[in-house]
Computed example of a mutant assay.
Amino acid sequence: MKLGNIISSIVVVILGVFIILQSSNFPDEVASAPGPGIYPSLLGWLLVLLGSILLIQTFVSRKKEEIIVTFTSKQALFIYKLIGVSVLYCIILPFLGFAITSFLFLIITSFMLGLKKYRLLILIPMVSIILILFIFGTIFHIPLPGQTIF
Rank of each mutant, 00 (worst) to 15 (best):
Ile10Asn: 06
Phe150Leu: 04
Val30Asn: 15
Ser61Gln: 09
Ser110Ala: 08
Gly146Asp: 06
Pro40Val: 14
Leu42Tyr: 01
Phe26Gln: 14
Leu131Arg: 05
Leu133Ile: 10
Cys90Ser: 13
Thr70Lys: 09
Leu121Glu: 10
Leu15Gly: 13
Leu55Ala: 06
Thr101Pro: 14
Leu93Met: 11
Ile83Thr: 11
Gly37Leu: 05
Leu93Ser: 06
Tyr89Arg: 03
Ser110Met: 12
Leu77Lys: 15
Leu82His: 05
Thr138Pro: 15
Ile14Phe: 09
Gly137His: 04
Phe103Lys: 03
Val85Phe: 00
Ile135Thr: 14
Asn25Thr: 12
Ile83Cys: 06
Leu50Asn: 10
Leu82Cys: 04
Phe18Glu: 01
Gly44Trp: 07
Val127Met: 08
Lys117Glu: 11
Phe105Cys: 07
Thr138Tyr: 10
Leu21Asp: 01
Phe105Asp: 10
Lys64Ala: 12
Leu88Arg: 13
Gly51Arg: 06
Ile108Cys: 04
Ile67Asp: 07
Phe26Thr: 07
Phe136Pro: 00
Ile100Asn: 07
Ala99Trp: 01
Gln22Arg: 13
Leu49Asp: 12
Ile67His: 07
Thr138Ala: 00
Ile122Pro: 00
Gly16Cys: 08
Ile132Lys: 03
Pro94Lys: 00
Tyr118Asn: 10
Leu54Ser: 12
Leu115Cys: 06
Thr138Glu: 14
Leu47Asp: 11
Gly37Phe: 04
Ile79Pro: 13
Glu66Pro: 11
Met1Arg: 11
Phe59Ala: 11
Phe134Gly: 14
Phe59His: 12
Ile79Gly: 05
Phe95Tyr: 09
Val17Ile: 15
Gln147Pro: 13
Ile79Ser: 08
Ile7Lys: 00
Gly114Ser: 08
Ile38Asn: 09
Lys116His: 07
Pro94Thr: 00
Ile100Gly: 05
Ser32Trp: 03
Ile68Pro: 13
Gln147Gly: 07
Val30Cys: 09
Val85Arg: 02
Val12Pro: 09
Gln57Thr: 02
Gly137Ile: 04
Gly97Thr: 01
Ser102Pro: 08
Ile149Ser: 12
Leu123Cys: 10
Val48Gln: 14
Leu106Met: 13
Ile10Ala: 08
Phe71Thr: 11
Phe71Ser: 11
Phe136Met: 05
Pro145Cys: 02
Ile92His: 03
Leu82Asn: 14
Gly16Asp: 13
Pro94Ser: 00
Ser102Cys: 06
Pro40Phe: 05
Ser32Met: 12
Gly51Asp: 07
Ser8Thr: 12
Lys81Asn: 13
Pro143Ser: 04
Ile56Gly: 02
Leu131Phe: 15
Gly137Met: 07
Leu21His: 08
Leu93Pro: 15
Tyr39Phe: 15
Val69Pro: 12
Ser128Tyr: 14
Ile108Met: 04
Leu21Cys: 14
Gly4Met: 09
His141Cys: 03
Ser73Met: 06
Ser73Tyr: 02
Leu106Pro: 04
Ile14Gly: 11
Pro145Lys: 00
Asn25Cys: 10
Ala76Ile: 10
Lys116Gly: 04
Thr70Val: 14
Phe134Leu: 09
